[in-house]
Simulated scan of single mutants.
Amino acid sequence: MFVELGGWVYMLANRPEGTLYVGVTADLARRAYEHRERTSDGFTKRYNIQRLVWIERHDDIGRAIQREKNIKHWPRAWKVALIVAANPEWRDLYEDLMK
C-alpha cells in the first residue's frame, strides 16, 4: 500500500520586504537547512535568500505542490500580505523548527 505523506509550502526572503522564494518540501527542517547552508546552486544561493518567513502545512503533498504553484503565480503584493499576516516582523522561523 502506498502512503502519500504531507508537505510544507514555504517562503524565504533575503531580508524584510526583500527578494522572495516560494518552495515546497516534505521535510521542512532539512530543506530550510539546505537553503541556509547554500548547498545547491540556484536562485536562493545567487540572491542569498535564507530567511524562512512563512510556512503552511498540508496533509497531502499533492495539495502542497498545487498551493506552491498557485502562490508562485500570485502578484508580489499578495505574497507579502500572506507573510505579513502570519509574521509581521519578517522573523526567521528557522529557529522555531529547531526547538
Rank of each mutant, 00 (worst) to 15 (best):
E37I: 00
E37H: 10
E37Y: 01
E37D: 05
E37T: 11
E37L: 04
E37S: 07
R38M: 13
R38K: 15
T39W: 12
T39Q: 13
T39F: 09
S40V: 04
S40I: 01
S40A: 09
S40Q: 14
S40P: 00
D41N: 10
D41K: 09
D41G: 10
D41S: 11
D41Y: 06
G42Q: 06
G42N: 08
G42K: 08
F43Q: 02
F43I: 08
F43S: 04
F43A: 05
F43R: 06
T44I: 04
T44P: 03
K45R: 15
K45M: 12
R46P: 05
R46L: 14
Y47H: 15
Y47N: 15
Y47F: 15
N48T: 01
N48S: 11
I49D: 06
I49E: 05
I49L: 07
Q50F: 01
R51M: 10
R51T: 12
R51W: 00
R51Q: 10
R51H: 02
L52N: 02
L52S: 04
L52E: 05
L52W: 04
L52P: 01
L52H: 04
V53F: 05
V53M: 04
W54A: 03
W54N: 02
W54Y: 15
W54G: 03
W54L: 11
I55W: 02
I55D: 04
I55S: 10
E56M: 02
E56S: 09
E56T: 01
R57F: 12
R57M: 09
R57G: 02
R57N: 12
R57V: 09
R57Q: 14
R57E: 13
H58I: 06
H58Y: 15
H58Q: 09
D59Q: 10
D60T: 01
I61D: 05
I61M: 14
I61V: 14
G62F: 08
R63V: 07
R63S: 09
A64R: 10
A64C: 08
A64W: 07
A64E: 04
I65Q: 14
I65L: 13
I65A: 13
I65M: 13
Q66R: 14
R67S: 10
R67P: 05
E68H: 08
E68R: 14
E68C: 09
E68S: 03
E68N: 02
E68D: 01
K69M: 11
K69L: 11
K69R: 15
K69E: 06
N70H: 09
N70M: 08
N70A: 12
I71E: 04
K72E: 13
H73D: 11
H73F: 03
H73T: 14
H73W: 03
W74I: 01
W74R: 05
W74E: 14
P75Y: 07
P75N: 12
P75H: 10
P75W: 03
R76K: 13
R76T: 11
R76S: 04
R76M: 04
A77Q: 14
A77Y: 11
A77V: 12
A77N: 13
W78P: 00
W78I: 07
W78D: 15
K79I: 00
K79F: 00
K79N: 08
K79M: 12
V80W: 02
V80Q: 13
V80F: 02
V80G: 06
A81G: 13
A81T: 03
A81Y: 01
L82I: 06
I83M: 08
I83G: 06
I83F: 01
I83K: 08
I83A: 03
